[in-house]
Amino acid sequence: MSPASDITRGPARGITRATLLKDLRLEWRSKDAINSMLFFSLLVVVVFSFSFDPVAEESRHIAGGLIWVAFLFASVVALNQTWARELRNQVLDAYRVSPAPANSLFLAKAIGNFIFVSVLEVLMTPLFIAFYRLRALGPAWQLLVVGVLGTWALVVNGTFFAAMSIRTRSREIMLPLLLFPISIPAILAMVQATTAILTDENSARFWIVLLVTYDLVFTTSCLLLFETVLNAE
C-alpha cells in the first residue's frame, strides 16, 4: 500500500554509506571538526618542538610517542564533534524512530572519524618529519600498517565512548576519561611499533599482531553493545 511498506528493514550497507556521505557533506560545509583538529595538532607539534629539541638519533626514539600522543589528542576533538552534530535539533531521534539498524549508524560514524583522523595524520606527518628530521631505519611500509590499525583502534572505541559521553553531564571532558584508560594497550602498541620501525632495533611484528587482535575484539564488542547504548535513556 504505502510505497515503503514492502521494505521493513532498509539494506544496512546502503544506510551506512548514506550516513557516511551525509556526515562528510556536513563536515565539508561546516568544517567544525577538521579546522579545530588541524589547528590543535599544529599547536601540539610546535609546542613539542620547543619542549624537546633532540638530535636525529634521539628523535627516532621519542618520535613514536610524540606523534601518537598528538594524534590521540587531536582525534578527541574530532570524536566529540561526531555526536554533537546529531544532537543539534535532536536529529538522533529521527534516526531512532526510523527502521534503520543502529549498527549502520555506528559503522558510518566510525568510518567517518577514521577518514577525518587519517586526513589529519597525512597532513601532520610531514611536519613531524621536518621538525624532528626523521628517517626510518626499518621497513617504512610497516608504518602505514601501524597507522591504519592504530587509527582504527582509537576511532572505534572513541566513537563508542563519545556516544556514551554525550549522555553525561560535562560531555566534552568525559570522552578522554573513558577512552584513554581502555586505549592504553593500543597506544603502547602503536608507540612501540613506530619506535621499533624508526630505529630498526627490534621487530614490530608482535605489536602489529596485538593491534589486529585489539581491533577485532573491540570492533566486535562495540557493534554488539551499540544498540543498547543508543537506546538507553
Partner: peptide, 18 residues
Amino acid sequence: AALAVLGALCVPFVYLSI
C-alpha cells in the same frame, strides 16, 4: 555495564602489551 564489559576485555591486552 557496557563500559565494564569493554574494560574487562581490555585486561588481557594490558597484560600482554606490558
